[in-house]
Design a protein around this nucleic acid. Structure first.
Length: 475
RNA sequence: GACCCAUUCGUCUAGCGGUUAGGACACAUCCCUUUCACGGAUGCGACACGAGUUCGAUUCUCGUAUGGGUCGCCA
């Protein structure tokens, strides 16, 4: 665990290089960290070229946590400089995904702010003016085809990183980088740096895949005569195979969690734990707690694999804790998708409560409660087999139906009493009748307590269900 | 190939020189139980390797190996 502000030496051959000297900047720069008391401003800067990816969502989450923890601003900026690859659908997936997770942005699209526009496609004039500064300083040159390149300083550069410590890069031998295409559009590294300057970003929290390029950004910052922001490069999320999560991996799109029936709070909680360990007794923590506990300098530096099983476990935990109303609301679209209207059964909420600790995902719910909503439920093979296992079963069921149909009260206790009565009369244990009743009432071998099922569906339906089972399965 | 980051149970991790190396998920067994589950208990299970430094290394240094990432007129 790293301590805040600690500077760690890396096993780099440049550890002993002196602090680098800036020779090619427009202005003299004193080598000092950014003002510690300036208000925190962080940003999430996705490119709308695909879906919102779990890695992107986690990056947004860490930025959001940092901003909320420090009372700063969380900015959303859309990096759509390559318009050939941007789609409306991808933009909606990003906004929708962030909102679903509860990652509200203080400035950005649909919200506004003092540093807009927040689409890079609308900021060309700003980029042009910054390019002019570079040209004036003699830090650019134009290729024959019109592309513009930035002349690297070719000095050693140190990246000061909250997560990785001081990372030293030797004077580069790479070709100067292109910052503007022949058609006049700008390249990522350039616009990213310009906007971070313009939007007064104080901390850049992003994936570790950017670490190797950060020296280029710092080189540009220096050329503009500004201090670079603080950096925090967070570890990558790996798939179960151990390589960077990509669109092809299961669970890479946030949308899939929405569709499978995760609760936003559950994903939020698990996402926090990938790359960071809150200093708390438990791993299950609410948003407020996570915000107050968040410390960017405690983010891990090693990549982590995505554990879908554990993610699911968190969802199961949150499902069990959901209030009846919240569970009903969350389940409603999933019931609808399976063809059941939550309003069609008076005790829908109670039905859901009766199975909530049996499932991990909202999407599993319909399979556990469908028989509450209809009486023509199918009889599963193993239920049929169990019903047919003993010749006495039909008589037992009919006896139960007879007693139940004359029951005065209708509650779980009275149903239980009826079963006990039939059991005694037939010299069998109640435990021999319970399963049969379950098969008859639900068509399944597993499910809520059988007295609960009978109670919720009511007396008439219970008797009808037994009669149908006897007629169709035990003719 | 060059450069950068990393390496503790199967997975996520705690650990910041001396611990029976702790927890969570998963798995196994038992208890509970009308089913399926929940819950409870117990168990299984790790410091990549090699040199240093040190009285003593999981912990510090160097090297090796392995994994990941970056080297675009993608972001």
């Amino acid at each position: 665990m790293k301590q805040g502000g600690e500077t760690r030496q890396r096993n780099s051959s440049h550890v002993h290089d002196p602090p680098f000297v800036i020779r090619h900047s427009l202005f003299a720069i004193h080598h000092c960290p950014p003002m510690p008391n300036s208000p925190v401003r962080v940003r999430f800067a996705p490119s709308p070229t695909g879906y919102l990816h779990v890695g992107g969502a986690r990056t947004a989450l860490f930025n959001w946590l940092f901003a909320r923890n420090r009372g700063g601003k969380f900015v959303l900026r859309i990096e759509d400089t390559d318009d050939a690859r941007n789609t409306e659908a991808a933009r909606e997936a990003i906004f929708g995904g962030l909102r679903w997770l509860g990652l509200d942005w203080d400035e950005g699209p649909e919200v506004g702010g003092d540093f807009g526009p927040y689409y890079q496609s609308q900021r060309k004039a700003i980029y042009d003016s910054y390019l002019a500064k570079l040209e004036t300083a003699g830090r650019t040159y134009t290729e024959e085809n019109g592309a513009v390149r930035f002349k690297f300083s070719r000095q050693p550069i140190v990246v000061t990183d909250l997560v990785c410590g001081d990372v030293h890069f030797a004077a580069t031998e790479e070709p100067d980088m292109t910052i503007r295409r022949p058609d006049g559009s700008y390249i990522f590294h350039f616009v990213n740096v310009v906007d971070d300057i313009e939007m007064k970003i104080t901390h850049v929290i992003r994936g570790e895949d950017h670490l190797s390029n950060t020296w280029k950004h710092i080189d540009l910052m220096h050329a503009f005569g500004v201090h670079p922001p603080r950096y925090a490069h967070i570890p990558l999320i790996l798939n179960p195979g151990g390589s960077k999560m990509s669109k092809r991996d299961e669970g890479s799109a946030i949308e899939s969690y929405v569709n499978e029936g995760y609760l936003p709070d559950a994903l939020f909680n698990y996402l926090c734990l990938v790359g960071w360990t809150p200093r708390a007794e438990d791993e299950k923590l609410d948003r407020q707690k996570l915000v107050s506990l968040f410390d960017a300098s405690e983010i891990h530096s090693a990549n982590a694999r995505w554990d879908m099983t554990k993610c699911k476990w968190f969802n199961a935990q949150y499902l069990r804790e959901a209030s009846p109303d919240a569970l009903l609301d969350a389940a409603r679209p999933f019931l609808k998708a399976a063809g059941y209207d939550a309003e069609a059964f008076a005790h829908a909420s109670a039905a859901l409560q009766s199975v909530k600790e049996k499932v991990s995902l909202l999407g599993e719910l319909p399979g556990w409660v469908h028989f509450f909503f209809r009486e023509d439920y199918p009889f599963e093979d193993d239920a049929v087999a169990r019903l047919k296992a003993k010749p006495d079963n039909k008589a037992l069921l009919q006896a139960v139906a007879a007693v139940l149909s004359s029951a005065g009260e209708w509650n779980e206790a009275s149903v239980h009493a009826a079963i006990d009565q039939v059991a005694a009369q037939n010299s069998v244990k109640p435990g021999a009748i319970m399963p049969l009743l379950r098969f008859a009432l639900s068509g399944q071998t597993r499910g809520p307590g059988v007295t609960t099922i009978a109670h919720l569906v009511g007396k008439e339906s219970t008797v009808r269900r037994i009669a149908r089972a006897c007629a169709e399965v035990l003719p």
